[in-house]
Amino acid sequence: DLSIEVDDVDAALEAMQAAGFAIEYGPADEPWGVRRFYVRDPLGRLVNILSHR
C-alpha cells in the first residue's frame, strides 16, 4: 500500500520491533539493490520500509 525510503533500514526495523509492530517480511536484501522489510500499520495497510544499497 505504501513505501517509505529511509537512510538506515536496520535502525527503522529496530524501532518498529521496539514499538511492537509485527514484521510481515524481511529484512531482506533484494537482488535489485534494495534492503527492505514490511510491516502493517494500525489500519492494516502493508508498509514497505526500504533503502537503496
Rank of each mutant, 00 (worst) to 15 (best):
G33S: 01
A22P: 11
V6A: 09
D41R: 03
D41Y: 00
I49S: 04
F21E: 06
A19K: 05
V34A: 04
R45P: 02
A28R: 12
E14S: 09
S3L: 01
E24D: 09
S3F: 04
F21G: 00
V34H: 01
D41Q: 05
A22C: 09
E5A: 11
D41H: 00
V6Q: 11
R36W: 08
L43E: 10
G33W: 02
D41N: 05
V6H: 08
L2V: 15
I23P: 02
L13E: 00
L2K: 13
P31V: 08
P31A: 12
A11Y: 05
E30F: 13
N48L: 06
I4Y: 00
Q17T: 15
E30I: 08
E14G: 10
Q17W: 08
L2M: 15
I49G: 03
E24K: 10
S3N: 02
Q17R: 15
V34S: 03
D29W: 00
F21I: 05
E30G: 09
F37T: 00
E24H: 02
V6E: 12
F21V: 09
E30Q: 15
H52L: 15
I23D: 03
I4M: 04
V39P: 12
G26Y: 06
E24V: 07
R53Y: 12
A28V: 15
P27Q: 10
A18Q: 06
V47Q: 08
R36V: 06
D41K: 01
Y25V: 09
A12F: 04
D8K: 12
D7P: 12
A28K: 13
A28S: 13
W32Q: 04
V39Y: 07
A19C: 09
A15D: 04
S51V: 08
Y25W: 11
L13D: 00
L13N: 00
S51K: 13
R40Q: 09
G26W: 01
E14N: 10
A22F: 09
D29P: 00
V9G: 13
L2D: 05
Q17Y: 10
L50F: 10
L2C: 14
E30W: 11
P27E: 09
E30A: 14
H52Y: 15
S3K: 02
V39T: 11
Y25N: 13
F37D: 04
Y25R: 11
G33R: 03
L2F: 14
F37K: 05
D41F: 03
D10E: 14
P31M: 07
D41S: 02
G26N: 00
D41A: 06
H52F: 15
P27T: 08
D7T: 15
A18M: 05
R36F: 08
H52T: 15
V34T: 08
V39A: 15
S51A: 15
G33D: 06
A28E: 14
P27G: 07
L46M: 10
G26D: 06
D29R: 05
G26E: 02
R35K: 06
E30P: 12
F37E: 03
D1G: 01
I49R: 06
R40V: 03
G20S: 12
Y38T: 09
